[in-house]
Design a protein around this nucleic acid. Structure first.
Lengths: 165, 165
DNA sequence: GATTTTATGTCAAGTAGTTGTCATTTATTT
DNA sequence: AAATAAATGACAACTACTTGACATAAAATC
C-alpha cells in the first residue's frame, strides 16, 4: 500500500506537535530580537521590558517580592537577580525592605522607570504590537492567548512532575 | 461616563496584545526549561534538539550549510557556531566541506546523532509533546500553528524594516 | 587576472537563561 | 529559647543569545 516502505519507526513523532513547538521556538527568538530592537535606543531588552511591565501593573506600586516575580515571569531567581541588578544600575527600579517581612526586599519602579514606561516605552511597545499583530482580530488574539494558556498549564504540570528528583 | 477617571494615557497599550506576548514569553521560557529537563539524561538542550531536528529532516542527509541553518532556526551565526561546536564535541554532528562550494561547510548528523534521534530522543520528545499538548485536538494544533505562523510573518517583516540602519 | 561578494570562522563584550552551592537574615514553629 | 523554614544574596559553571569587528578562503563578476 505504502509508496515509501519506511523502516518501522520506533514511535513516530507527531508532526503537528513538532511544527507547533518549532514555531514557538522561532517566534520567541524573533520576539526577543525584534522586540529588543524596537526599544534599542532606550537600551531596554525584552526581559527588562517584561520585568518593568510586571512592576507597572495595578497593585504593584508598593513593590513585588523577588520570589513572586520569578514565579510570575517563570525564570529562575538567580537569573532575575542579574536582570534586576542591571535595571537598578540604570535607575529604573529600586529595592525596598518589605514592611511585613524584612527578609523580603520588594522591587518597585523608580519614578524614572515609571515615567519611561508611561511615555517612550508605551509608544514603542504599542507600535511593536500593532506591527506584530497586523491582521489579528480581537478574537484571533483571544484564541491565540487561549492556546498559549493551555500550553502553559500543561507544561507547568509537566515541570512539577519533572521536579520530583 | 468612566468610573475611573484615568489621567489621559499617552497611547493606551493594547491589553490583549500585551497578554499574548507575555504568554509567548512565558511559554518559551517554560518550553526551554521543561524541554531541556525531558532530555537531561542525554545532556541535550532544546536548542540542540532544534538543530538535530533540523538535520534529521528528509533532504538534510547530505548536510545543511550553516547560513541556511541560521535562517531556519532564526538565530545568529555566531550563536549557532557555539551550539554546533558543542554538538560536534559530543559527537552528534559532523562538518563536511560542500562539494559544490568549498567555502561552505555542510553540517550533518553523525551516525551516532542519527541513531540517538531515532531512538531515545524520539521517545522522550513524543512523551513531552503528548504531555504538553494534552487536550489539544488536531484542529487546535493547526490553529495554534497558524497563529504562530502569522505572528512570525509579521515579525519577520518588522525585523527586515528595522534592519535598515 | 583583479576586484567584489559570499560563507565562514573567530574574538570580544554584553545580556539572559539554567543548575548548584553556601551564607545570611528573619519568620515561624516547636 | 532553640530549631526549622523561607527569602535573599552571592558565587560558580555552563549554555545560549545578541551585536560588532576583523580575517580568510573561495566563488562570482568585471
Amino acid at each position: 500500500m505504502s509508496e515509501h516502505p519506511s523502516p518501522a519507526p520506533h514511535s513516530k513523532v507527531d508532526d503537528l506537535a513538532n511544527r507547533l513547538f518549532f514555531r514557538l521556538y522561532q517566534s520567541a527568538n524573533l520576539m526577543h530580537k525584534s522586540g529588543t530592537k524596537a526599544l534599542e535606543d532606550m537600551h531596554i531588552t525584552t526581559q527588562q521590558w517584561a520585568v518593568i511591565g510586571a512592576l507597572a501593573r495595578d497593585g504593584a506600586e508598593d513593590g513585588i517580592a523577588v520570589g513572586e516575580l520569578t514565579r510570575f515571569l517563570m525564570v529562575s531567581r538567580q537569573n532575575l537577580t542579574g536582570v534586576l541588578a542591571r535595571l537598578e544600575r540604570d535607575g529604573l527600579i529600586e529595592r525596598v525592605v518589605s514592611p511585613h517581612d524584612s527578609r523580603s526586599r520588594l522591587i518597585r519602579l523608580s519614578s524614572h522607570g515609571r515615567h519611561l514606561w508611561r511615555t517612550d516605552m508605551s509608544d514603542r511597545i504599542s507600535a511593536f504590537y500593532e506591527a506584530a499583530l497586523e491582521g489579528f482580530s480581537t478574537t484571533d488574539k483571544i484564541h491565540a492567548i487561549h492556546y498559549l494558556d493551555k500550553l502553559l498549564d500543561n507544561m507547568r504540570q509537566l515541570d512539577e512532575g519533572q521536579g520530583e528528583s
